[in-house]
Structure formats: C-alpha cells, structure tokens
Nucleic acid binder design. Structure first.
Lengths: 204, 204
DNA sequence: GTCTATACGCAGATAGAC
DNA sequence: GTCTATCTGCGTATAGAC
C-alpha cells in the first residue's frame, strides 16, 4: 500500500511555525506554542530542526522567496503602464488581505537582526534593476512624468503595505476602531491607491 | 550651595530606557542593558519603576504624546493647501531623520500587545476629526480633487513613515545597501513626496 | 519517530547591607 | 538612594525510555 503521508510531521511543524512566527515574531513566539499548534510536543521540534533559530530561518527565508517574485512579474509585462500599476496594486492588496500579519512581521524581523536578514536576503538574490529600467523607459517614452523611479517604487509599496502594518493605529485614528469599516477601507484601496498614483504620474 | 541635580537618577533611567526600548523594543530590550546605558545597576531600575512593564509604559505613553500633536498643528493652519502639505512633509521627514528608529519601534509595539496599546492610546485621546474636516472643506472649495480624506492621510503617513520602517529592505533593494545614498534619498523625499502628493490631488 | 522528564541559562524581580 | 547577592520562573534544549 501507498503509505506516503502528505501531512507528515515536518510539514505540520512548518505550517504551525509559520502561523505562530508571523503572528508573534521570533522574539515573541514560544516553542511550546508552536508545538501545541502542530499537535506535537516540544522535543520533536528540536528533533526536526535543531534550534528555534534554525526553524525560524527556514520559515523566514521561505517567506521572502514567496513574496517578491510576484511583485515584479506583473509590472514587467507588456501592458500599458496604467494597467500594470492597476493590476499590481490589486494583486498586492489582495495578497495582503489574505496575509494581514505579514507586513508587521517582516518589518519587525528586518529591523531585529540586520546581519541575519542581509544574509538571508542576499542568498535569495532579488533584483529590482529590471523594474527600475522599465519605469525609466516609460518616462523616456513620455508615458509617465519624469521622477526618480525609486520614489515611485517606494511610494507604491508604502501605500499598499503601511495600512496593514499600522492597522491598530489607523483603525483607531480613522475609523474609531471599527473593524468592518477598516477592512472595507483596505479593500477599496485596490482602487484608491491606483487612482492616487496614476493621477500623480500620468502626464496632464 | 545649590545641590539640585538636573541629571538625576530618574531622568538618567528614562533617557536610557528610551534609547534601548526604541532600538530593541519591549521584547528585545534587557533591563541589564538599560542599567548599563544609564550607568547604574538593575536593582535601581526596579526601585524607581517597579517592573519592566511599568518602565516601558512610561516611555511609550510619553512617545505617543510627543509624536501626534505636531502632526495636526501644521495641517490645521490657514495657509494654502499646497503649503500646508509641503510644510507637513518637510517637518515630519525631518523629525524622522532625527528619530530614525521610531517608525519600526512604534509599528512593532502597536502590533504586539493590542490591549495595552489601545488603553495607552485612548487615555491620550488624539482626535483627527478636525483634520478630516479640513480636507473635506478643501475639496468642497475645489482646491483639491474629491477623494476619501482618510486615503489622503493614510497615503501621506505611509509615504513618510514606510521608508524609515523598511529601511534595511529598501536600502538593499534600491541602493545596494549604500547607507549614504539611502540617507540622501530620505532627505530628498521632503520634496519628492510633496510633489507626488500635490500632483495627484491638485485639480488639473 | 515520538514521548516524558529534566538540565541549564537567562532575565526579571527581591532581600538586605551600607 | 544605591549597591551586591540571590531567588524564581520561564523557555530552550537535551537525555533517555519506548
């Protein structure tokens, strides 16, 4: 008989660790918590991954790989610039709506242990030079106004990511802590960020 | 003789705690570290502030009070909207350049213990309703295009704060980890954010 | 591979001398 | 008020039975 188990222990651990680490961060997470979430005991965590640090590295490295490839692909297509930005924002916000803890987690961790972050990151070698080139070409062609393409990338990422990372604060400040209204606000930003950016960069 | 000491122990502790907590966060900071920074020993920390939690609350609550009053004042002046936004961005970026660890710290802490954050925050009662009203009036007067003023506030804060909070990431992605160039980029954003926003919201 | 029991170190907190 | 020494609990990690 075929005794391959899809849901084997290692996968259960990785899934549980991802959930807990994203929610609590490296410092805040407890090995006991991860074991509970996975339905096993602490000792098994150490049997599969020698230490908390190693387990964390597995999760974090994997996450960085997941997030970034998707950023570039849409923006590097051959569609008109308006469509590229619209699609990028929609897809990115949708991804964040499905992973709302991700922004705060990543920001926390990249600021915690900078050596570790840089090593992890450089080994995954993500390259935005093509993206910068694309924006520069759109400017030369007169499709968008001239500006530092780094500002454009920073602004787009900022407007997408920040309302998730600062959710507890903005929800309170802008919506009297109303959860429903804040989530609707985030959903609507698929459109409003696009409008805001295109209004700024399209030639008058 | 006048033996009033300006630099008394309590002040030294508060100053040291602020430095360490902002850099490391509540979870990452160590009482020993704070004691060392203040040039005293651990026991004194507990003598002045019963617990780490109480010391942290003193720092965090104080910080929230410092940050927010300055946000509104400029934007609620009677200057033309272009000037208000220009001045706000310049002042806010300047404040962040002088407190570069602040964004990552605040984002980390508001996502850590939401109950504590809400209590601290509500007792400081910051109110953005006047700000929302101001933007709505500018829209009615036709000085800026119609949009949800909450998006405008979120976008401005996002564009200012995010490049500081995501510094390790953006520095690597956009500037090959060149510290000098990244700081120049941040400095220049006093102008580029203003341009980006005004281009978007001013009537064509 | 999986478990229970335990070792070990660290960090917050306290006791008590001065 | 300030210090040294110490207690205590928690969390990572390991030993060892099954």
């Amino acid at each position: 008989m075929n005794d391959i188990k899809k849901d084997n222990t290692e996968d259960k651990i990785l899934k549980a660790a991802k959930t807990i680490f994203i929610r609590k961060g490296m410092d805040g997470a407890r090995m006991q918590e991860i074991a509970d979430e996975a339905g096993i005991n602490k000792a098994l965590l150490h049997y599969y991954f020698r230490s908390k640090q190693k387990l964390f590295e597995a999760i974090f490295s994997n996450l960085l790989n997941q997030i970034f490839p998707n950023i570039s692909s849409i923006l590097l297509s051959t569609k008109p610039i308006e469509e590229k930005i619209e699609l990028f924002v929609e897809n990115y916000i949708e991804m964040l709506l499905q992973n709302p803890y991700l922004p705060a987690f990543v920001l926390k961790e990249i600021n915690r242990d900078s050596d570790f972050f840089e090593n992890t990151f450089k080994s995954n070698r993500i390259d935005l030079s093509q993206l910068l080139l694309m924006f520069e070409n759109e400017m030369k062609a007169g499709n968008i106004r001239k500006m530092n393409p780094r500002d454009l990338i920073a602004n787009l990422l900022a407007m997408c990511i920040f309302p998730f990372a600062a959710k507890p604060l903005l929800k309170l400040l802008l919506f009297n802590d109303d959860h429903e209204n804040y989530n609707r606000f985030l959903e609507e930003r698929k459109k409003t960020i696009t409008e805001f950016a295109l209004n700024s960069i399209l030639p008058k």
